[in-house]
Simulated scan of single mutants.
Amino acid sequence: MPKIWDISPPVNAQSPVFPGDTVYQQTWCATIGPGCPVNVSAITLSPHAGAHADAPLHYDATGKAIGEVDLDAFIGPCRVIHAIGCGPLVQWQHIEHAMSGGAWGPAPLPQRVLVRVYEKMPQTAFDNALPAFAPETVARLADLGVKLIGIDSASIDPADSKALPSHQTIRQRGLRVLENLLLDDVPEGDYELIALPLKFTTADASPVRAILRKLP
């Protein structure tokens, strides 16, 4: 079996969420004991907790809910690119080294690109200074045929952004997005991505169990 990298951070009561968003909570509706053969819990959480896929509905009032989005973007060849220490925005010069050619050889850029910006992804505290994508970088990736971008920070836009230019760029260009990935142990390179959202028919996002597998 090919090696698997689990790129989903743990989801629990310590999982950071955007300030004001719904934190993870779990209560037990039933527990194993006399007269009860099973444990059953109830979970409350933001669909943006942990590794997740945003739906167009998240940034477009008339956009599709996550359960209506085609799944093809969330499975297939992808490239992991390191831009650690890039500063507040991932600019083109931070990822240009991983485009086709040079040390990367003749392999064309896959349709999915995941960018690692953290040496260690914050898993228990929200990063108000989270690195995000420059919208110009998103547009250039779209020009190259990319249909999904991902990042190990909580958003492709700065935490204090109100205009959300990178989200608006993926809206305009029809891209899909994964956020809050855990890429700490993933070398740069090409992989198979599998990160399927749940079929929430009215939700603005969905958690994913995202994995990478090494290509043959």
Rank of each mutant, 00 (worst) to 15 (best):
A125L: 05
D60I: 04
L114K: 14
L130N: 12
N128Q: 12
A125D: 10
A13Y: 08
N39P: 03
L130Q: 13
V113D: 04
I43A: 04
S100H: 01
A73S: 13
W104M: 12
K64E: 13
M99V: 03
I75T: 06
A125W: 08
A49C: 15
Y59L: 06
A98W: 09
G105H: 05
F18H: 11
I95H: 05
T22P: 06
K64D: 14
I7N: 06
H97Q: 02
G50K: 09
C78S: 05
V38Y: 00
V11R: 15
G50I: 09
H97C: 02
A107C: 09
D70E: 15
D60Q: 11
W104T: 07
G35T: 01
K120C: 11
V17K: 02
N12G: 08
Y118K: 06
V115P: 00
V90S: 03
G85H: 02
N39A: 13
H94D: 11
A65D: 03
Q93A: 07
A129M: 14
G102Q: 01
G63N: 09
L114T: 11
V40Y: 11
H82F: 01
H82A: 00
N128K: 12
Q91R: 07
I7H: 08
Q93N: 07
I32P: 03
L114Y: 14
A98D: 15
R112L: 06
S8C: 10
P131Q: 13
A53F: 08
M121W: 06
W92R: 01
G101T: 08
Q93F: 05
G87F: 10
P9I: 14
G102D: 04
V23N: 12
K120L: 13
A51M: 10
N12V: 00
I75F: 04
A49V: 15
G67P: 03
S41F: 01
R112W: 09
R116Y: 04
A125Q: 12
T27H: 08
I66K: 04
A30D: 06
A98P: 08
Q111R: 15
W104R: 13
W28E: 14
L57K: 15
P10M: 13
T44E: 14
H48A: 11
I7F: 11
R116T: 02
G76V: 05
I75G: 04
P37W: 10
Y118A: 05
H94G: 06
T62P: 02
N12F: 00
L130K: 08
I81S: 06
K120A: 13
Y24E: 05
A73D: 12
